[in-house]
Nucleic acid binder design. Structure first.
Lengths: 261, 261
DNA sequence: CAACGAATTTCGTTAAGCGAAACACCGTTG
DNA sequence: CAACGGTGTTTCGCTTAACGAAATTCGTTG
């Protein structure tokens, strides 16, 4: 339990985290003096940390009883993390199998701020020249990942993604709202998304959504390969991706990001 | 989102919590520069916070990829909080009903560090002179709460509670290991615990355990009243407490504190 | 191999975190 | 009713240690 030390540790932060850990692990809401006695820190210091953490929303300060407990913001963060953690850890095995099976690049992504964010990537092939990286973002309209998720969003949510003029990534990129809506609609009926050189010249992608317990698309998996190689395996790929997505859905915790908050 | 401000806020802590919130809400593990760009803080500062939070175990630092993500310690705290939060919020209504029904003091407690810790208390009657307070602790051996939980613990765990000589709280308090084991055994057979003036002169308590999904006693509820008044209602009280405990158990999340870690 | 981007390390400045102590505010007690 | 003990809040100087610019290392890329 090195409280200080680690060369670059910021002491106020480290100590505040001790307070945090203490409060979070108590079954009851705590008082200032209780924390002081438990951790042996000066009263003023603990007071300030409790105030700071409350102001940040991680704690809730019950003014009436003068007690501090874990706050909603913390629970919200924990909920989101639990979902994403579960997503990544159970997706891991599925991604591996897909790579083994198809020897092509496999992507896992979520939707954030109207963009596709890559969460995990398995590269089977050599030239990783133009591959995305974890954390990188691509547009919704030019990726199979984006279209797969959009297709299973409620209509209002889809409309919030629509732009009068989408960014043109390649000469094949769809750029108008009308075409985007049509692609989304086709994807919904088909059950998986196809994107052919719309995001990157010469690269075709098949994407399927990963739905949470409530049927909301929380993420998507895709297989991407050069057009030439993809043509033969597109159908089988779609099936394999859908199977993987279903299995991932099955192990997700029963919480939804869309309903909460 | 008052980042600073609140009179007593400690800036390093407040800013570190921004970093914390950002990292926790991303679906992927993040890099230093990603956080820097997202939050607009100086590189050095963010670096130090990431180091500090990693040292505290709240983050996990993937050295290979140089990425930071939520750590196990955070998840552990979140798990504990979720359980206790659920316990308290669903117990609330039950406690109210018990107080309404019996017009006597009702207690909710957990076991921590070999002691009974009061988590919630409803006082029906006037003289709150000697009532416990939230966060206060009482011995296991002298309370119905403690005996109720001990009775449903595995034997090794019970033995860890045994002392050669227990504290004598009243002239009726059991003080030897032998008697304690006998009480625990009787409580297990009976299904609820009785304590008559062993913790406090003239006060009788009936306690029942609240079991988690795995059958471990995570908490206990008790009804306490003057000996005289309790005699008549003891049987009915035990039944009502057991019903309440069962209902609380049913709504608890499917996590156990005893298996994890 | 040069050049870039990203993470670490150094270092001097100065702001601000710190904690003792004083203060205010109960609820309690004799 | 007044004194008390225990809590939370506020003040106030001291000095520490947080800060961030810049330099450095490291790895990657063209």
């Amino acid at each position: 339990m090195g409280k200080a030390g680690d060369q670059y540790s910021v002491l106020p932060v480290a100590k505040a985290m001790q307070v945090f850990a203490y409060v979070a692990s108590q079954a009851h809401d705590v008082t200032l003096t209780e924390v002081v006695q438990a951790l042996g820190m000066p009263k003023t210091t603990v007071f300030r940390y409790l105030q700071t953490l409350s102001a940040a929303g991680l704690f809730a300060h019950d003014i009436v009883q003068d007690r501090y407990g874990v706050g909603n913001r913390f629970r919200e963060l924990a909920r989101v993390d639990a979902l994403y953690h579960s997503l990544r850890s159970t997706a891991e095995g599925e991604l591996d199998e897909l790579v083994d099976d198809f020897r092509e690049t496999v992507n896992l992504a979520v939707l954030a701020d109207h963009e596709v964010v890559y969460v995990d990537i398995r590269e089977a092939t050599r030239s990783q020249r133009f591959q995305a990286r974890i954390g990188h973002r691509h547009p919704v309209h030019s990726t199979s990942l984006g279209k797969a998720m959009a297709a299973f969003l409620p209509l209002e949510a889809v409309e919030r993604l629509v732009r009068p003029q989408f960014e043109q990534r390649t000469y094949r990129t769809l750029t108008d709202a009308r075409t985007f809506r049509r692609h989304v609609e086709e994807t919904r009926k088909r059950g998986f998304a196809i994107e052919t050189g719309e995001n990157e010249d010469g690269v075709t992608c098949i994407g399927v959504p990963i739905l949470d317990g409530k049927g909301y698309p929380i993420a998507a998996v895709s297989l991407s390969a050069p057009d030439t190689r993809m043509r033969a395996t597109a159908e089988r790929a779609a099936g394999a991706l859908q199977d993987a997505a279903r299995r991932i859905t099955a192990t997700l915790p029963p919480i939804s990001l869309h309903t909460s908050v």
